[in-house]
Write a protein that binds this DNA or RNA. Structure first.
Length: 382
DNA sequence: CTGTCATTAGTCAGACAG
DNA sequence: ATTACTGTCTGACTAATG
């Protein structure tokens, strides 16, 4: 590994919503929200035009998965309940999530990047890190080439940050969005990084922000000014040392180009809260179906598991999990159902339930089997 | 024989991210 | 009638082992 690393972070702009705009170009410029549970596809009329659902018509428990920039301007962001967002933007268009299509465009943009720079770390469906250390071209040239390649392959824009490490590149890609690029060096840290809120650091979420705020820390510069001892007292050895380093822009984490999954899970929120006894049959069917789906996922990806766990979310949003590690690995639905049933016996059932989940951990690759890893060919999304 | 220490595995909750 | 789903990581605690 070279001493002077050059790492890019590439992030697709409003990815799910932008893919939907490829399919429905007439919605460009409008407030559009992607999300919800069981939403109907837009109805197509004889003249080829579409009838779209409006946010105000929505009834249910779904959340916003992504929104277009005009919708964000109205205060509608990812993770917000759809019932709540309907109050802010009743006339916004509501589209169902179409994961097939997103996976298709995800493959397209990653392949396009890989032809230019093959050392890629997958960070989910819409973003990647790229190790550019061994490339002779300047960062500006590389960033332009990458963005053009992604646009040519998908018709979609992305934003790129390039810096000596993943931490800074992730922050950088967000600084000029959408369709932007930001190059940062270590000497830019005081001027460009320290004024930013601590929440811009990947790994500092709402809870840590709240805790830091109470300690009088709101931006990254203030975090850098905190004595190490203070951070260790309030956040523990591991997190304390980590915060001390990230505030200085220090991050040696490598770009990881391959990794094995650690767990496979399925969960589902019910349309209404279910009672453990009164809705026993309904719950039992959902439970079995979750176990079956986990078993299918395991087979499809070529793994067996030794740990099975269940997850419940009660009506008051309180979550409990129980798991069990078996002496031997399993992979079929019947055995998963049996093990998950044992876990379920250990959870309190005094309250109504809104979510049930089943998880398989302790994964072991089934060598020699059809560890295909899923479909390689890109099927058409629409 | 008893107490202590280190290490590991297992379990559970919670934070975080995309 | 506000709050999805999938996955990773870490801290705290317990039990087992030597």
């Amino acid at each position: 590994m070279p001493a002077d690393r050059r790492i890019a972070h590439l992030d697709m702009d409003a990815f799910f919503a932008s893919v939907e705009l490829l399919r429905y170009p007439e919605l460009r410029g409008q407030a559009v929200v992607v999300g919800g549970g069981h939403i109907h596809q837009p109805r197509q009329l004889a003249d080829g035009s579409h009838v779209f659902a409006r946010l105000r018509e929505y009834v249910g428990r779904g959340v916003v998965t992504t929104s277009t920039y005009p919708a964000r301007a109205l205060g509608v962001f990812s993770g917000m309940g759809l019932m709540k967002s309907a109050k802010l933007a009743p006339e916004a268009i509501l589209l169902p999530v179409n994961f097939e299509a997103y996976r298709y465009y995800s493959r397209l943009f990653k392949v396009a990047v890989a032809r230019i720079a093959p050392r890629i770390e997958d960070r989910g469906i819409d973003e990647i890190y790229i190790d550019l250390s061994d490339h002779p071209e300047t960062s500006v040239v590389l960033a332009r080439r990458l963005r053009q390649a992604v646009l040519d392959a998908t018709g979609l824009t992305c934003s790129i940050g390039i810096s000596p490490n993943k931490l800074l590149s992730k922050i950088a890609s967000d600084l000029d969005k959408p369709n932007g690029m930001t190059l940062l060096g270590l000497d830019d840290i005081p001027a460009r990084i320290w004024p930013l809120p601590v929440s811009k650091v990947n790994g500092i979420g709402p809870r840590s922000v709240e805790k830091l705020t109470r300690l009088g820390v709101s931006n990254i510069g203030e975090l850098a000014a905190m004595p190490l001892e203070q951070l260790l007292v309030h956040f523990g050895q591991s997190t304390g040392h980590w915060m001390h380093r990230v505030a200085r822009g220090i991050d040696e984490c490598p770009v990881v180009t391959e990794s094995e999954p650690k767990s496979i899970s399925r969960e589902s929120t019910f349309e209404r809260d279910l009672h453990a006894i009164r809705d026993k049959l309904e719950l039992s069917e959902i439970f079995t179906s979750l176990c079956t789906r986990v078993a299918l996922d395991l087979q499809r990806k070529g793994y067996a598991c030794r740990t099975i766990g269940v997850k419940l979310r009660y009506a008051d949003f309180h979550v409990v999990t129980r798991d069990i590690t078996l002496p031997v690995s399993i992979c079929d639905g019947k055995k998963i159902r049996r093990a998950a049933g044992l876990c379920l016996k250990r959870v309190p059932l005094t309250q109504k339930i809104r979510l049930l989940g089943v998880r398989a951990g302790g994964l072991l690759p089934l060598t020699g089997g059809n560890a295909d890893g899923g479909t390689i060919q890109a099927e058409l999304p629409f």
